[in-house]
């Protein structure tokens, strides 16, 4: 219940901050009346900018903000609301040009007759167009993720900064000291947010470093990175959560990557992340030397059994390295002495490359764990399930009681696997609120 109240509160605050400029500018005494189309265009510009500015809040990784929804949903919302705010910003000049074609001459950036307010607005608009094009088509344009992130931040700052300059230079609606103070405060809020995320928080992370203790080969091109806190109490987290990792790089560079924690939440001074070789960055994990300095930003995420204290049973449906949050949960349950039943349906390519295969077997003696392996390429004498995770397997292995709040099911693995499992669970009439997934496609 607390989560829903928090979620509703943040949503209403978001809406309030998005609408604040146009509501406050309507307070008497108002600026003199003008044509409807001109004021409609102005209102769309103000609202579009307010929504664009709110993206700094959404992507600032505030834990209190992501707690009710999950980080994946915050980024999903960020992508969608950003495109909608771009449409509002774009509509602002288009409406002006349509209803007053004389304003088209303001597009001549180099003309001495073009005022600086128009130049600032036009540059902000170009930054907005670039932001959307580079984000929506990043993969098609083959732009490297880290480079894109830096430019994304730069362009967003240019957009908000120059749009603010544009509004201040136009100054039409700021006819009272109250409205001027409001706009200055609004601007200072964005600057303060930028200072916090780009300078203050990285400084805090630098003062709470970790050192790599060891890198363990878990099989199946999967490696665990074990970290020890240096001079502080470690990371307090819930099993199933994740953190952003900066490896051998100061946090100012923002070259961090999100990974699930695989260690026990009962041991905050022994943190591990389990990572599979999938791309340029993950291929370097096995080469990291003990003693390397690491900074952790987190924990984040709601993909945790601790969010469902009422649950009587749990099930994890994992594919390959998607076992990571399940490992954290199983290790935590073992440390806590939690005997609630856990069913693990674990899909892998073959028997030889199953990450944590031996440790999972060992955990069966410490907790109430049932393991169901599903192998794509099983050995000849294999008696278990083969192929992919099907509705039939789920129907047989998951709890037959499909009442709400009995068995909480967590799904983690490759996107197509998660899509298929969600579809099967829905068809099997599992309560929609009882199965959970968290997707790391944040970019």
């Amino acid at each position: 219940m607390k989560r829903y109240i928090q979620g509703t509160f943040w949503l209403l605050l978001f809406l309030g901050l998005a609408l604040a400029p146009i509501i406050l500018l309507m307070i008497e005494p108002r600026a003199p009346s003008r044509e409807f189309f001109r004021e409609f265009s102005v209102a769309l510009g103000f609202s579009g900018l307010a929504l664009a500015g709110m993206q700094f809040v959404l992507t600032a990784r505030f834990r209190f903000l992501s707690a009710p929804y999950g980080t994946d949903i915050i980024y999903h919302f960020h992508r969608e609301i950003s495109i909608l705010s771009f449409l509002l910003i774009l509509a602002h000049p288009i409406i002006l040009f349509l209803f007053d074609p004389r304003t088209l001459k303001l597009l001549n950036f180099l003309s001495p007759d073009t005022p600086w307010r128009a130049r600032a607005g036009l540059t902000a608009l170009i930054a907005a167009i670039l932001l959307v094009v580079l984000s929506v088509w990043r993969k098609k344009l083959k732009i490297e993720y880290n480079g894109w992130r830096i430019w994304h931040g730069v362009l967003a700052t240019v957009l908000i900064g120059l749009a603010m300059v544009h509004i201040i230079l136009v100054g039409y609606h700021f006819n009272t000291p109250f409205k001027q103070i409001f706009w200055v405060s609004y601007t200072l809020f964005w600057i303060g947010l930028l200072v916090y995320t780009r300078i203050l928080r990285p400084f805090w992370l630098i003062r709470h470093p970790y050192l790599v203790e060891k890198v363990v080969d878990e099989g199946g091109r999967t490696y665990s990175l074990w970290l020890k806190p240096q001079g502080h109490g470690g990371l307090k987290f819930q099993p199933g959560q994740f953190a952003w990792i900066h490896i051998d790089q100061l946090p100012f560079y923002h070259r961090d990557h999100p990974f699930s924690i695989s260690s026990s939440a009962a041991q905050p001074t022994q943190i591990s992340f389990t990572i599979r070789e999938l791309g340029d960055f993950t291929r370097t994990i096995k080469e990291i030397k003990p003693g390397t300095k690491v900074y952790l930003e987190g924990p984040f995420g709601i993909f945790s059994p601790d969010h469902h204290p009422q649950a009587k049973k749990f099930a994890y449906i994992c594919g390959g390295v998607g076992i990571t949050p399940a490992m954290s949960t199983l290790r935590t349950f073992a440390d806590r002495g939690d005997k609630r039943p856990v069913t693990l349906i674990y899909a892998n390519r073959d028997w030889e490359n199953i990450p944590f295969r031996d440790e999972l077997e060992a955990l069966r003696s410490r907790i109430n764990l049932k393991i169901v392996h599903v192998l794509e390429q099983p050995p000849e004498d294999w008696k278990g399930y083969s192929g992919y995770i099907t509705a039939d397997i789920l129907n047989k292995e998951l709890d037959s009681d499909r009442q709400p709040n009995v068995q909480e099911v967590f799904i983690c693995g490759p996107g197509p696997m998660m899509d298929a499992v969600e579809k099967h669970l829905s068809a099997l009439k599992f309560p929609a609120g009882d199965y959970h997934s968290e997707r790391f496609d944040l970019a």
Binding site: L15, L19, V42, A43, L44, I73, H76, F77, L88
Partner: peptide, 30 residues
């Protein structure tokens, strides 16, 4: 499911912003 709710909320916010913008334009044009 969560993603669909998030999309729906983004669209609701977008519509509300347009409605308030129309009210703003009307208030300043009379």
């Amino acid at each position: 499911m969560r993603k669909r709710i998030s999309t729906a909320l983004a669209i609701v916010i977008f519509i509300l912003v347009i409605v308030f913008s129309l009210i703003f334009a009307w208030a300043f044009s009379i």
